[in-house]
Every structure is written in structure tokens, then in C-alpha cells.
Amino acid sequence: MSDPVSPLGNARFDGFVSVREVGPLGMITLRAKADVKELAAAIKAAVGTTVPAQRRVVINGDRAAGWMSPDEYLLVLPYDQVAAAMAAIATAMGGAHHLAADVSDARAIFRVEGAKATQALQKLMPVDFATLEPGELRRSRAAQVAAAIWEQDGGFTVVCFRSVAAYVFGLLSHSAQPGSELA
């Protein structure tokens, strides 16, 4: 069995905010219509949270469930517990129409931390951070690639595709250059 590695080997940059690549982190994409009654039990079994409301992320320690679209949820959990969670989802969903996929190795995750974390992201994303609510998961783009962000533990978690991990890390670290704070 090979050891899982995060795309950039937990790279880190310290500017006016710190940018660090975290991981490997377990991620499961769960697709099912919101009215499927088995859904709540499946999410509970996998990450121990309630079904997130529209555009929300529910955090439970090192696990989380996020709302990605009307029929798609993102489950975040420790990497080595994905297989167990996948089995739990399959049991809980039973015959209900759904799709659960292990996307842990398809993603890269960054943490942007510091008092001015918003400023580093503001320069890259067409998101109005003033109206971003606590516990909101926002899917958008970071410069030229898709990214999702949510606020957690006094910083932001940024999720993007693994193939663009180096690009996004470059963007974030450039955006966090000391002296480039917004007024």
C-alpha cells in the first residue's frame, strides 16, 4: 500500500497571512436529492452532522458536511476513515438513488489564516466577503480555476482540484505578499 501524499507536500507561505497546504484529507462527494429520506442518516453516519442547509457547511470537529448544489454534498473527514464512511453511507442509503464517490485524491486543500485572510482571498475571487455569512460555503473561482471556500477556526479553508494545486498555491502566496494588504 502506498502512502497518501498531499499534492504539494504541505507547502507553506507566510506573508501578511499564512497560506498552508493541508492534507491529505478525506473527501466524499455524495449526490442525492434533498428529499431522499435516507440522506440525513447517511450524512450522520459518515460525518456525524445534520444535512447542511442551502450554501451552508456544518462542522463537527475534524469532520464537516457542506452543501455544494441542490443535489450534491461534500463530506470532509480524516483520510483513513473514508472507506468506513463509504460503507456506512452505502448501508444507510440502502436502495435509495444516490452516488457516493471518494474524491480525497482529486482535491487540494489550503488554509488561509490571519487577521486579514479575507483580503488575500478578496483579490482573487468575485465574492462579496462583506455579505458572506458565518457557516457559508461559497463555490466560486480563484482567478481562473474553480474553488470553494468556507470560514473555519478563524481562517478560511480553500478547496480546489488537485491538478491546479500548484497554481492556486502560487495565487494565494502572491496575494499574501507582505506589503500587498488592501487599505
Binding site: 442551502q54 448544489s69 468575485p126 462579496d128 466560486s140 473561482r141
Partner: peptide
Amino acid sequence: PYCGVKAEETEL
């Protein structure tokens, strides 16, 4: 209308 985000043109 699905996620309620006020998205600007470049996200669409």
C-alpha cells in the same frame, strides 16, 4: 435560483 448566490458574469 438554485443556490441563491448573486453571481457575477465571470462565474457563469
